[in-house]
Write a protein that binds this DNA or RNA. Structure first.
Lengths: 180, 180
DNA sequence: CGCGACATGTAAGCAGTTACATGATTAT
DNA sequence: ATAATCATGTAACTGCTTACATGTCGCG
């Protein structure tokens, strides 16, 4: 489905970026719904170049270090906008190893299950705190039709998602905490 | 990480099943957190057989149709239980194409965004209704330490997840509904 | 007798991870 | 100097999807 392609093109709609900068973005904000390693990004950029959906120029950092700055082409813009407006079928539920373990937790002692749940809660709580910090970086809600608004709303969505997981974990804690 | 392996072994801990039955399960209850096609399941069963984690015997349906019923071995049980108790790092946020589109929605008209949002809402609502029906099939909450309890709790988790997505979609509808 | 579900497999290709491989720049 | 970060790539492998391929059973 070439989703990475459209993720990259979308980012290049905002501003020209190097492979390395794209890579960072996929670890940060975009990481809330689409992550990718540099080992996937560099080959994809090469492919986009062949397809003439992006172009690049070289910038020199310091004395010799070359940075390839990629820019979206008009052809790339058209391709991206066509993709963006498409309705798509609801994807299957995401794969989550932790839920798989919980599905089989009747084979574990209560104490073990509780440990897994609490471990998960800590990790999720950390993530939630980080998201709330990200949200506070905006002063007030950004205006509609800006990239900032989109980012703000995505973070809101990620917060709601983490909160729902924590609610679910609390159900286990309630039940497993009841005497034993 | 061989997650499919453990998903299969976990299901075989409950009861012996054929590849086809496993396949159905991955489309139904287990589909709430781990899905797999038959084209992935049959080769995996072959591998588990070589590793001696499962065994099978043949049953005949009707006149000639052969069903291979797989049973977990003692070695398989040990392997599965080792895996089950392991704490694991929180996985990266799941990939969702819809969120990716929303991240870039400043390139669309409000009406187009609203259409995408409403389309998604309908699909999510359908899924939520199906989950609530699944939950009602249990009469009252099943007792702890039973496979039924695990399944009940997983469905609760899936419901919370869908509700959080609907809350997020409602944020868009509020904002996009405001005059325009 | 035809259709949908049952039943089992393989092949080709795309997507993604982990590891390999190299080198420059900046801050301490 | 040396460590962290910047910067770009490739290779091998695992995981997953889509399509191909075949045949049976039960119901109407």
């Amino acid at each position: 489905m070439r989703t990475l392609k459209y993720a990259i093109l979308g980012l290049l709609m905002r501003q020209s970026l190097s492979g390395y900068e794209l890579s960072k973005t996929f670890q940060q904000s975009v990481g809330n719904f689409w992550h990718a390693n540099h080992s996937q990004i560099y080959p994809e950029l090469k492919k986009l170049l062949e397809e003439e959906l992006v172009a690049f120029h070289v910038e020199i950092s310091g004395e010799v270090l070359e940075k390839k700055i990629y820019t979206i082409t008009e052809k790339g813009r058209e391709d991206f906008l066509d993709w963006l407006a498409q309705e798509s079928l609801c994807e299957p539920a995401p794969k989550e190893i932790f839920r798989l373990r919980m599905f089989f937790n009747n084979h574990l002692e209560d104490a073990q299950v509780l440990q897994l749940v609490q471990n998960q809660r800590e990790q999720r709580l950390d993530r939630l705190c980080a998201l709330r910090t990200d949200l506070q970086k905006f002063d007030g809600k950004p205006g509609k039709h800006t990239p900032e608004w989109s980012e703000y709303m995505i973070i809101q969505g990620a917060i709601l998602r983490e909160e729902s997981v924590l609610q679910w974990l609390a159900l286990y804690e309630e039940e497993l905490g009841e005497d034993g």
